[in-house]
Simulated scan of single mutants.
Amino acid sequence: MTIAPDAVQREVHWYLAMRDAVQSLDDTVPGKFEITKEGIVHDMMAPSGPHELTTLRLRKRLEKVMPEELAAHTGAPDVEDEPQGILRLPDIMLIAEADMEIQGSFDPHTLIAAIEVVSRSNPDNDWVGKMRDYPLLGVPVYAIFDPRTGTGAVLSDIHQTAAGPRYAMRKDFVYGEDVTIGDWTISTEGLPLYA
């Protein structure tokens, strides 16, 4: 199926309008905004202590085992694929420091992995939306840590399906086990759970 150039332009125009709306709301409305194929996702809740502690412990553990030129980056900027109409802000991005030396959003194709700590207020964003969007963006590895259940999964090996790119491999784990993300194995011992 070929998409007409006018349809592509309308989609890009629609995406740019959503991005402008998100940017105008970012400093005035609490929470985090992302853009998916289905529209704007707004996580109204500020991350909780267990969410932030999980993110911190994962970042520290990964940076101990990764080469010095790589980072387990948390925070801004986001990753964006304008033609796909997707803007995401992973909790942790494994990326080369050299690929961070840019203005604006990171190119999602430079990410080694995206890591999410499931939000208590919107778990489907991590388990459904991002599981769909990260392979569309070309992120080779997606790891999910779920403090609600003390479980998670590492997804990899993007392949084409009738519904678009999807991850072919899924390795589930429970907290306490070692987990491999990309080329690096870390412990999940001591990661907090939501009360």
Rank of each mutant, 00 (worst) to 15 (best):
I86A: 00
V118W: 04
W184P: 01
S121N: 10
Q160M: 11
G39S: 12
D172I: 04
T188I: 06
I144L: 15
P5Q: 11
L25A: 10
V141K: 05
I86L: 07
E116K: 15
V117T: 09
W127K: 15
F145C: 13
V29Q: 03
T55R: 12
E116V: 15
Y194A: 05
G129I: 12
I3H: 00
T188V: 06
I95W: 05
E116D: 15
V139Y: 00
G85S: 05
A17M: 12
R170V: 11
S105H: 14
V29W: 07
A153E: 12
E116T: 14
G85F: 09
T54S: 14
W184M: 02
L89P: 08
I102A: 06
M45Y: 01
L111C: 03
A71Y: 00
G104L: 08
R120N: 12
M1S: 14
R170D: 08
G138P: 03
G190Y: 07
E101H: 09
L87F: 04
D27R: 14
D124M: 11
P47T: 11
A76L: 13
H73R: 15
Y134S: 10
H51I: 08
R148N: 13
M100Y: 12
P47K: 08
V128L: 15
E82K: 13
I35E: 08
G190W: 06
V65T: 03
D124W: 06
D146R: 12
A163R: 13
N125Y: 14
D178R: 06
W14P: 11
L89I: 07
D126Y: 07
S187V: 07
E177D: 14
E68D: 11
A76K: 13
G176A: 08
D91H: 07
S48V: 01
G182N: 03
A162P: 09
E68I: 07
T74S: 15
M1K: 09
T36I: 04
D157C: 04
D91V: 02
I115P: 10
D81S: 15
D99K: 05
P30L: 05
V141S: 00
T110K: 13
G49K: 07
A113I: 07
E116S: 15
G39L: 03
L155G: 05
E82R: 13
H73C: 09
A153I: 12
W14D: 15
L53T: 04
F145Y: 14
S187I: 02
G164S: 07
S119C: 11
G85R: 02
T161W: 01
